[in-house]
Design a protein around this nucleic acid. Structure first.
Length: 721
DNA sequence: AGGGCGACGCTTTTT
DNA sequence: GCGTCGCCCT
């Protein structure tokens, strides 16, 4: 290892810093991973036992990547550095809780439930409490689950979350609190834990059991935490519990890339770190090795318009390269066509896996996925539906779940639903009968549903087997295949392949509990299952965190989509959207294309309505990108002189761009119709409000405090200021 | 009580 | 394009 030559001075300092707390502020593309990898390798080289290193990352994939790169540096070949404990906070918490579950009053262990299971449980409690019956204003179970999750992650009452961001639900605040309590009680009664419980229970374990705390403090003498800007409060407390104040803790993060505030992450953790760990060495990595200078100029400009100032300006040694392109398809429908043309063009220069298409939300790639299918371009989608979330996988895993935890309601419902004429209601009654040992009720039900006896016999047989995942899954799949064929007559072959993959995965585990927990905590790697072919990457911006590509295309950069329209009312939400765009653009090494459709297809009306370019795009100086319009043939046509962002025009307009200056420089001729003005206004009935969008036909969407968003003709509004 | 069917509404991001 | 809800029949 050549530390002097492989690292720049700041990286070198971070890698070779002696023990004690270290905070590394690592700008996008500044060699953060390289720094962590080299430090890992150096620690091991200096004789630190790998087993005493704890590496906490955002995904297990990231941990594995770092460990295998460090192994390579140490000359261990591609093998993962043996002994190092690496993974997510949640996976680490699960392992610790499993080891010490008796101490917490879970003598028989517990089951980790995912979001869908939690939703279902909440739905049942909602029904039990008789909430929302015939009341359309009562939130749906998924929304309730979201509120409860938020309140726990932000560590405040459900009522506080409601009054801060969903004030229309205030009338239901008391009922929602009751629902949250009921949910917590049901989890305890059935030995279930959701994602949040894992963290809070680990905290309780470490606080209440000094011996356990000391065990971990002695076991892990070196702790490294990646993506520290996206940790929440309980995660920060866990670090202080795991490490003494003078401990060897290295936190790495970038406040400008914080994109998980919505689930309780707080950049305050970065600011507070030096206070919690006195004597922290603070090291900043600012040189960018990833992107060309023109791309960095654009990303720097995005941050410059942020309300909160980030004291960083990335600089690159890569001065070459084209400016980012601003692609203007006619609509979000033709955007897919234009993107495919662009991807074809780029595929001449780079392999497909070096090209990525990013978007704000999963559904925004549907149209593109269809076009890619037509064009025969292979792709892999990140951040979409996960392997373990597919219905048939969950169905099959339900059997071993019942074996592992006979109180798991979601698992029982799935198993019992394979019996004809048994649905959620009967399943619940039966589960209660099993729990209470009510043999009479079971016999009665077995008489009514003849196939029930077979299912119970099968489950008993499973319980009698040694708890080895491989053989158990083999039997379960054999048992379940007829049901699968019945349930999915059209595509059961595809799903059967998925089950075979599951069988493969399962045989790699020695403990059933570990398999089940991993399936809910961390879905298996996509690329392990897919043939190693060259494919384009589609991803949500959130899932693209920490990754990079030679070429990046960004879809739907229009108001209401990016920033998401849910983020328009609160300032801090809008700021998070800005950082999200920053993360997206800093993924690109050589080429960055921003797609700004001129219209959006409106399904109800069946027409394309003009939209504005995203607020963030409108703010950018026109000189930072090149504009490319879609020609009528669908091929991209570069514009000779690139006026920045034309106001939206109807499709009927000529294909040639009307002469128009950049919006930022637009003169405010008529404040009522000027589409760039999104300030405050007054309305005779609703009072003061904030204009959040300009619509066609001289209308605006205005958010009135106390009334919510309304669409109003601009003529009825009086502009303020 | 289950299951099929049509209407509706909504659609952020993830461990 | 999806899940969810209510209605109606079995």
């Amino acid at each position: 290892m050549d530390f002097e030559n492989d690292l720049n001075p700041a990286q070198h300092q971070a890698v070779t810093a002696a023990g004690g707390p270290i905070l590394v502020i690592a700008g996008a593309g500044s060699g953060k991973t390289r720094t962590i990898v080299y430090r890992l390798a150096r620690l091991v080289q200096q004789g630190v036992d790998p087993a005493s290193i704890l590496l906490l990352t955002f995904t297990r994939k990231a941990a594995q990547e770092m460990l295998s790169r460090a192994s390579l540096l140490l000359g261990h070949g591609g093998d993962i550095l043996p002994g190092v404990c690496g993974g997510t906070f949640h996976a680490f918490a699960y392992a610790a809780l499993r080891r010490h579950h008796q101490a917490l009053g879970f003598p028989q262990g517990f089951t980790v439930i995912d979001r869908a299971d939690a939703d279902e449980l909440i739905g049942r409690i909602k029904d039990d409490l008789g909430l929302g019956k015939g009341d359309k204003s009562f939130p749906k179970k998924t929304h309730v689950a979201e509120l409860i999750g938020k309140s726990r992650n932000k560590e405040c009452r459900v009522a506080d979350i409601i009054s801060r961001e969903s004030f229309h639900l205030l009338p239901h605040a008391d009922d929602l609190e009751r629902l949250a309590d009921g949910y917590a009680a049901a989890k305890a009664a059935h030995h279930l834990m959701d994602y949040d419980d894992l963290l809070f229970l680990l905290e309780r374990l470490l606080v209440e059991h000094e011996d356990v705390r000391e065990f971990y403090r002695q076991r892990f003498t070196h702790i490294m935490v990646d993506e520290y800007q996206d940790t929440n409060r309980v995660q920060a407390r866990l670090i202080t519990l795991l490490a003494p104040h003078t401990g060897n803790v290295m936190a790495v993060g970038d406040d400008a890339q914080s994109i998980y505030a919505f689930r309780g992450a707080t950049v305050d953790n970065i600011l507070a770190f030096p206070r919690l760990f006195p004597g922290t060495a603070i090291i900043k990595l600012e040189q960018n090795y990833r992107s060309t200078q023109p791309i960095l100029e654009l990303t720097n400009a995005i941050l410059q318009n942020a309300g909160e100032k980030y004291d960083k300006t990335l600089f690159s040694t890569r001065t070459d390269g084209p400016k980012p392109e601003l692609l203007r398809p006619f609509s979000d429908i033709t955007q897919a066509r234009m993107a495919v043309a662009k991807i074809r063009e780029m595929a001449r220069k780079w392999p497909l896996h070096e090209i990525a298409v990013l978007f704000r939300a999963g559904y925004q790639s549907y149209a593109l996925e269809v076009e890619l299918g037509k064009a025969n371009i292979p792709f892999q989608k990140y951040g979409g539906i996960k392997f373990s979330e597919a219905a048939h996988i969950k169905d099959v895993l339900a059997y071993p779940r019942v074996v592992a935890n006979p109180l798991d309601p979601a698992a029982w419902t799935r198993c019992l639903s394979t019996v004809p004429k048994v649905g959620p209601k009967t399943a619940h009654k039966l589960m209660e009968a099993v729990r209470l040992g009510d043999q009479a009720a079971i016999d009665k039900a077995a008489h009514k549903h003849p196939q029930l006896a077979g299912l119970f016999a099968f489950l008993d047989a499973l319980r009698a087997m040694p708890p080895q995942p491989g053989p158990i899954l083999e039997r379960v799949i054999a048992h379940h295949t007829p049901h699968l064929m019945e349930k999915y007559p059209d595509d059961y072959p595809r799903r059967l392949t998925g089950l075979e993959q599951l069988q493969q995965i399962a045989s790699g585990y020695s403990s059933l509990d570990a398999l089940l927990a991993d399936m809910t905590l961390e879905s298996p790697d996509e690329d392990k299952r897919k043939a190693r072919e060259d494919h384009l990457v589609l991803s949500t911006v959130h899932s693209s965190k920490g990754l990079e590509w030679s070429a990046v295309l960004l879809l739907d950069l229009v108001d209401e989509r990016f920033p998401s329209r849910h983020a328009l009312t609160r300032d801090e939400d809008l700021e998070e959207e800005r950082r999200l765009l920053y993360v997206a653009c800093t993924r690109a090494r050589d080429y960055l294309g921003l797609c700004v459709p001129e219209t959006l297809y409106n399904r109800q009306a069946g027409v394309c309505s003009p939209v504005q370019a995203s607020l963030f795009v409108r703010e950018l100086p026109a000189s930072l990108c090149t504009m490319v319009r879609e020609s009528l043939s669908g091929r991209p046509v570069p514009q000779s002189d690139s006026p920045a962002f034309a106001p939206p025009r109807p499709l009927s307009g000529s294909a040639a761009a009307p002469p128009s200056g950049p919006i930022p420089a637009c003169e405010p001729a008529n404040p009522k119709t000027d589409p760039s003005l999104l300030g405050y206004c007054r309305h005779k009935v609703f009072g003061r409000g904030k204009i959040i969008a300009r619509l066609e036909g001289g209308k605006c969407r205005v958010n009135f405090p106390g009334f919510g968003p309304k669409v109003i003709l601009a003529d009825y509004l009086e502009m303020e200021g």
